[in-house]
Write a protein that binds this DNA or RNA. Structure first.
Length: 243
DNA sequence: AAACTATCCAACCGCCTATAA
DNA sequence: CTTATAGGCGGTTGGATAGTT
């Protein structure tokens, strides 16, 4: 029977020097120990996990496992087109600021988003100038698949709504002009901090805006997601609205 | 059916920053 | 003020699986 408090006594004088940390995939038992730790002690103080539970994992590994896999609020399953559109939009704005992008996607981790983007878009970005036949074929398949969805959306979605949404997003973004964040800063450290604050604030604003849009019945259109596909279609000489 | 390629994703690494001692 | 430590982040790796030739 698992008894953390008993184990505290057992391990409370610290781990043996030269502790060899376990690496690699986590076992179910390790997951259970970590979840039990968080249930009792809460998140944080990850370096105490080994001492308090007997887990042979370092703090970093524990934190990562919790954040990326065990957290109860994680959203499982594929990235939706809606989420994909947000990822594309925010990545275009902020670059590889995965953790910041992840804050706009509740239930998704920076690692997940990073993996998704690298798999789906990194290559496209690189190869965008010389799309080969293979990619074209794949694109066509995807287009066929999305066509039905697109048609459905077009029936219920007015393009003006999209303009409105993007305008609102821009507005929120510009409320805190980054140049202001920089202008009054003297040191590099201050600049960094101001930029970080700026991004956090913007992310929060946009998050609340997205929520507001959702609650007001705005369905963020998958058309945003199609933006990339549109780009490709254009390269191929096709009109996205006529797929 | 086998070989090859692409994709997915968990996990690690190294670096940086914040904070406590 | 300096140093040590913990936590956070982005980049990268490698194994598993799916898809293609």
């Amino acid at each position: 029977m698992f008894n953390l408090r008993a184990m505290v006594g057992h391990w409370s004088w610290g781990l043996v020097e030269d502790e060899v940390w376990r690496k690699g995939p986590w076992t179910a038992e390790e997951d259970r120990l970590l979840m039990e730790y968080v249930r009792i002690y809460g998140e944080g103080r990850w370096n105490s996990v080994a001492r308090l539970t007997g887990l042979k994992r370092n703090g970093k590994s524990c934190r990562l496992r919790w954040v990326n896999y065990l957290r109860p609020d994680l959203k499982r399953g594929q990235i939706t087109p809606h989420e994909e559109s947000i990822i594309l939009e925010l990545h275009a704005r902020w670059g590889n600021r995965w953790s910041m992008i992840a804050r706009s996607l509740p239930g998704r981790t920076d690692n997940e988003i990073k993996n998704y983007w690298r798999t789906h878009f990194k290559k496209k970005e690189k190869d965008s100038s010389d799309a080969n036949g293979k990619a074209k074929a794949r694109l066509l398949r995807r287009q066929q698949f999305h066509q039905q969805q697109l048609q459905q959306q077009q029936q219920q979605y007015n393009p003006m709504d999209m303009n409105k949404i993007m305008a609102l997003l821009e507005e929120e973004h510009d409320k805190n002009n980054i140049s202001e964040a920089l202008s009054s800063s003297a040191s590099e450290t201050e600049k960094r901090q101001n930029i970080t604050n700026f991004h956090s604030q913007t992310a929060n604003n946009e998050q609340s805006l997205l929520s507001e849009l959702n609650t007001n019945g705005f369905v963020l259109p998958e058309i945003l997601n199609e933006g990339l596909e549109v780009g490709w279609a254009m390269e191929l000489g096709g009109c996205p609205w006529q797929w």
